[in-house]
Amino acid sequence: MSGSWDRRQVRAFLVVVLSLVLVTSLTGSLAALAAAGRYNVVVATGGIGGVYYYYGTAVAELISRYANLSGTAIQTAASIDDLLLIRDRTDLARGTVYCATVLPDSAYLAYTSRHERFASKPAPISILWAMYPNHLHIVTADDTGIKSLSDLKGKRVSTGAPGSGTEVEALLVLEVAGVDPARDFAKWERLGASESAQALADGSISAYFWSGGLPTASVVELGTTLSRRSRHLRLVPVPDDLARQFAVRFPGLAAPARVDASVYGTREATPTLAFWNMFVCHKDTPEEVTYAITKAVFEHLDELVRAVPPARDTTVANAAMYLGGTIPYSEGALRYFREIGAVKK
């Protein structure tokens, strides 16, 4: 062979090189797809009938349909149960990844080992996105004389059902406000939403805490009941200065919010805190998997909202609101949000 190539040899060489490049690129892409596809994503939700169950089921369906992953939703006892499943049942070696819909306060306590079931082994989680908010309600009536958190002292108050997200949030807010239920309440009740509403209507308690969406049916019904008895529903404010103190004490856990007067027919809008529910996965979930999950959901938000109306607050603008907080975000989710310009580089 001579020291120089003719045109046919050059063309043949280029064809071989381009073929190798294409094969290498295709092989890499297929390998990445295969790496993601071999994982089974189990989405832990909540009880049937609750928003968590329907939201998690819809996300699992989007994962299966668009992420080249197997997605399955399971019914659970909600946040703490979900976080235990992520911690104890994720098996990356066998391709099993647990993700979940969880309350931010439960996630915070589990991640920081402040919850008793995570005291020796914290929840190994990272956030993919913020879902939708629960608003803290501190419900009372005009005739109780309760206008501020400090006015709860000496009164009969319910802080929510034992172990509930409402109770967790209530106790954290009271801690920041310097109110100790065991010491300061005349009677400390731990009732669920409907039981608390009934107790307030009957006069056996003076106020109660509830964390939920707007409007919450039981609070609406209570307002109607009170009105028939010539009483008027009031929501106790969480003032801006206390909200700032809360943010310092528990960074990234809640955001200031307002409940408009029109929501429950109160005499004025009420400042409070919004606790945004989180979608989380095990922190060691491969980046390509959390990227694929996030992409599948956020490129098909219309389908999610049609299935679960509260998902209207699952938006690109809200998704990264916990960035910089105590619990880190998944790198895969951040990669997607950077690609679409929702998060700066």
Results as ranks from 00 to 15, higher is better:
H232D: 06
F250S: 05
V219T: 07
D241K: 08
L242A: 02
L242F: 02
T225A: 11
A243V: 00
F250Y: 15
G213N: 11
V248F: 03
D240S: 15
R258L: 04
Q245E: 15
S218R: 11
L253E: 08
P239W: 13
V238H: 06
A254W: 03
L214M: 11
L242N: 04
G213E: 14
A247N: 06
R234E: 13
A255H: 10
L253N: 01
L235R: 08
E221F: 02
L214Y: 02
A254Y: 03
R228S: 12
A261C: 04
A243R: 10
S262H: 07
T216V: 04
R231F: 01
R234Q: 14
D260K: 04
R231T: 10
G252T: 02
D241R: 10
R249K: 13
G223C: 08
D240L: 11
A261W: 04
V248W: 01
S230E: 14
V219F: 00
L214W: 05
R229C: 00
V220K: 06
A254C: 08
E221A: 14
P239M: 08
L222W: 04
A247M: 09
A217D: 13
F246A: 05
E221L: 12
G213L: 12
F246R: 11
T225L: 06
T224H: 09
S218N: 14
A261K: 09
V220W: 00
L253S: 02
T224E: 15
E221C: 01
S227E: 15
S227M: 09
G252V: 02
D240R: 13
R234F: 10
D240W: 00
L253D: 01
A243D: 12
A255M: 05
F250T: 00
R229A: 13
P256Y: 08
G223Q: 07
A217L: 10
P215C: 14
A257C: 09
V248R: 15
R229W: 00
R258A: 07
A243S: 13
D240G: 02
V248E: 15
P215Y: 11
S230Q: 14
G223L: 03
R234Y: 15
L253P: 07
R231V: 13
G213W: 11
A254Q: 07
L214Q: 08
S218C: 09
H232K: 13
L214N: 06
G223W: 02
R228T: 03
A255Y: 05
V238S: 09
G213C: 12
A261G: 01
S227A: 15
P256D: 10
S230D: 14
V248C: 01
F250L: 06
L214I: 06
P239I: 03
R231N: 10
S227R: 15
E221I: 04
P215A: 14
P237M: 13
G252N: 06
V238T: 08
S227Y: 15
T216F: 01
L242I: 12
R249D: 07
R258C: 00
T224Q: 14
R229Y: 00
A255D: 13
L233S: 11
R258D: 00
L222Y: 07
H232Q: 12
L214R: 05
S230G: 04
V248P: 04
L222D: 04
